[in-house]
Design a protein around this nucleic acid. Structure first.
Length: 400
RNA sequence: GCUGGAAUCGUGUAGUGGCAAUCACGGGAGACUGUAAAUCUCCUGCCUUUCGGCUUCGUAGGUUCGAGUCCUACUUCCAGCA
């Protein structure tokens, strides 16, 4: 059978786990390290595929849970698959719906705990919508309240119906607020067995669905911030026939790089590793240095829609009153469409007026900013300037 | 000119005799990491670091233990009629 994915390593960072490489999929290649924007519902909110492509995006990641509920994976299948459906000709990923086990169930605010405090504030959600057992997860649809059950098998069937190049095993994303005993139970009774079941079903579907290009499956490593669990999970999944690995779950921000290292030391070197849901610049540097190849995150798009734009001196809210009469480019150094053609005062006005273009322009800038950052990191690994670049960038970014 | 109605925070409003300031908008600030998010949180009369203190319901009087609320006059605005 034709390979679903090939991964080639080019350059390495001496004394660290960072590497550059190329992921080859049926819909094209991804130069790694790379940032993959998230288009949950088969669209990156506020952007056309052409606009997204102009930001330098090499791929896009959609979500099985959302597309299962609406429009339904069968409809995307009928449409010819995700690429055809959303008019995107580059590589695609789908998340398994595992994130929703957490976000609809526990719903704690912080997947990454900034300071280790046990802040158990729910995310403004009144009602628990997901219940876990060892077979799968029952969901109450956030759209209409109807009950659904996700299993590893169904998640793979959905992801094959959607037809992304790279899919993820169905996992349980625990939070840092779960205790060690729960983390062990989650790993042994759910994430590990679910990985096995996901892989079996995935391989079956790849053989049955010969009319479509073969899809790749990444196992997802969990274990929160426990070294023994991270290493154990990495070894367990690393021994299996996955095409790559998702680095998932909860991290303590201060040692996210160290945790990434625990996993990447155990995972097979010749397979790509995707860091799930991370895009803060310091986290990206730490994770790449410790072996992560690709990233996805909603943050650039979401914070952009909410008026926060990235600059090399940190994230700032363009809704601030000071920008009302700032007739300069928001970031003169930025090569994005927004910064090349509009002033801060105009962006400020669009947000204050609630104009839809605010979302588009802010999203373009933020996606471009993070994509360019990771592209620059990739070049810095190749030409040996990684540590200099990291120091200069982070000193500026966190100087305020 | 006559008749009726109205006047409360920057704006529109709630408050019909018992500690004025509800809600919305506007304004200010912040948050956002595998998207229940074009969302959410806080502040928004004055003074005070805090605790707390003080001021205000168009103007001037009156009734009342007590008035944004009832009465009188005035001012302004709105509607209708001339």
């Amino acid at each position: 059978m034709k390979k679903a994915l090939e991964f080639e390593i080019h350059d390495r960072l001496p004394g660290a786990l960072a590497r550059t490489g190329t992921i080859t999929t049926p819909h094209g290649i991804i130069q790694t390290p790379a940032f993959i924007p998230v288009g949950t519902k088969a669209t990156l909110k506020a952007l056309t595929p052409e606009q997204l492509s102009e930001t330098g995006a090499q791929a896009v990641l959609a979500n099985a849970y959302h597309l299962y509920l609406r429009p339904g994976h069968d409809i995307i299948d009928q449409a010819g698959g995700l690429n055809e459906f959303m008019h995107w000709d580059k590589p695609t990923f789908t998340d398994s719906g595992g994130f929703q086990v957490m976000s609809l169930g526990v719903g704690f605010k912080k997947i990454i705990d900034m300071d280790g405090k046990t802040d158990e504030r729910p995310l403004g959600k009144k009602e628990k919508l997901a219940w876990i057992d060892n077979d799968g997860v029952k969901f109450k649809s956030h759209l209409d309240g109807s009950m659904h059950k996700f299993t590893p098998e169904l998640s793979m069937q959905i992801q094959h119906g959607i037809g992304a190049d790279i899919t993820f095993a169905f996992d349980e994303l625990t939070t840092l607020h779960h205790n060690y005993e729960y983390q062990v139970e989650s790993l042994h009774e759910r994430t590990h067995p679910w990985a096995v079941r996901s892989l079996v079903e995935h391989q079956r579907l790849n053989e049955v669905r010969t009319h479509r290009p073969p899809q790749a499956l990444f196992g997802v490593v969990q274990g929160a911030n426990y070294e023994d669990l991270r290493r154990e999970c990495s070894k367990f999944l690393g021994a299996m026939d996955f095409d790559g690995y998702g680095l998932g779950g909860a991290f303590t921000k201060e040692n996210i790089g160290e945790i990434t290292g625990w996993m990447c030391q155990e995972l097979p070197e010749n397979k790509p590793r995707h860091m799930l849901g991370i895009s803060e610049p310091d986290d990206i540097f730490d994770c790449i240095e410790n072996g992560a190849d690709t990233f996805d995150c909603v943050s650039p798009a979401r914070v952009g829609r909410n008026g926060a734009l990235y600059t090399k001196f940190g994230r700032v809210n363009v809704t601030r009153a000071q920008y009302a009469t700032d007739f300069t480019s928001f970031d003169a150094d930025c090569d994005c469409y927004t910064c090349q053609n509009f002033t801060s005062a105009y962006l400020h006005h669009l947000f204050k007026s609630g104009e839809l273009l605010s979302n588009t322009l802010a999203t373009i800038h933020n996606e471009r900013f993070i994509i360019r950052l990771v592209d620059d990191i990739r070049r810095s690994i190749s030409d040996g300037t990684f540590y200099d670049f990291k120091q200069v960038f982070l000193n500026n970014y966190y100087s305020k």
